Computed example of a mutant assay.
Amino acid sequence: MKKLITILSLGMFSLGFSQSAYYNDYQRSITDVNWQTVAANLLLSNQQKADLFALNNQYPDYYSWNRVYANNPDQWRTDRYTSIQRIMGTEKYTKFKNKYYKGQNPVAVYNRNKNNYKSTQAKKYKTIQTKKNAQNSKSMSEYNRRKQAGDQSHLHIKGNNGKNKK
């Protein structure tokens, strides 16, 4: 029984942890943009500004966000940016997207961020392998240089004091 409770609690913790990463992305989508500046630059109407700020305040904490997106945490991206497009209109939304997301779909930007951890780990591994290969290359070139120079030190074996034991 204790094992079952432990397994269930670990499962719920890991699910909650992964969903909190989605919520953090959601929060960054709000805090990384100066919405006052966006409204001023795009000449949004008072109603559009009010709708946009209401959208930004829709889920003030993780629990309110989680009630809606617990079963499909990826969905927040599509919902949010569809709502922003509806509020701004297609033309202003395109200007917003070009300025803040370099013309890319914000949904795709946040989906790509979701996988950054994996790609970062792969890059670290490749860097480590490259460094190891460079070290091995240096060692081998030193060995070859000594061998060509007639230096017998490349034949030294650790623990061998030069005497033959029979």
Rank of each mutant, 00 (worst) to 15 (best):
V38R: 11
S29N: 08
L4Y: 06
Q48I: 00
S14A: 03
P106T: 11
T6C: 14
R112Q: 10
Y110E: 15
A134Q: 08
Q47T: 10
D151K: 14
K2W: 13
D79E: 07
A122Q: 15
R146K: 07
K95N: 12
Y101S: 10
Y117E: 14
K138T: 06
Q148N: 03
S14R: 00
N57V: 04
T90P: 02
K131W: 15
D79W: 04
I5C: 02
N66Y: 02
V109H: 10
K97I: 11
Y110C: 02
Y81E: 11
K163S: 06
Q27L: 06
T31D: 05
N160I: 03
K131S: 08
K99H: 13
D25L: 01
K99N: 15
T78F: 03
N111C: 05
Y22G: 01
S83E: 11
T130C: 12
A50K: 00
L15P: 00
T90V: 04
K2T: 09
T82Y: 12
G103S: 09
D74S: 10
P106V: 09
F96E: 06
N34W: 13
N160A: 09
I7A: 13
Y22M: 03
K163M: 12
Y69L: 02
S18T: 01
Q36F: 10
T78K: 10
G159N: 03
G103L: 14
R77Q: 08
R67Q: 13
G16K: 06
N164E: 15
S119W: 11
Y26N: 04
M140L: 14
V107I: 14
L8E: 15
G159R: 03
G11L: 03
N116D: 15
Y63I: 03
L10D: 00
L155V: 02
N136L: 09
L15W: 01
Y59S: 05
N164Q: 13
L52G: 05
L8K: 12
R28G: 08
Q135V: 12
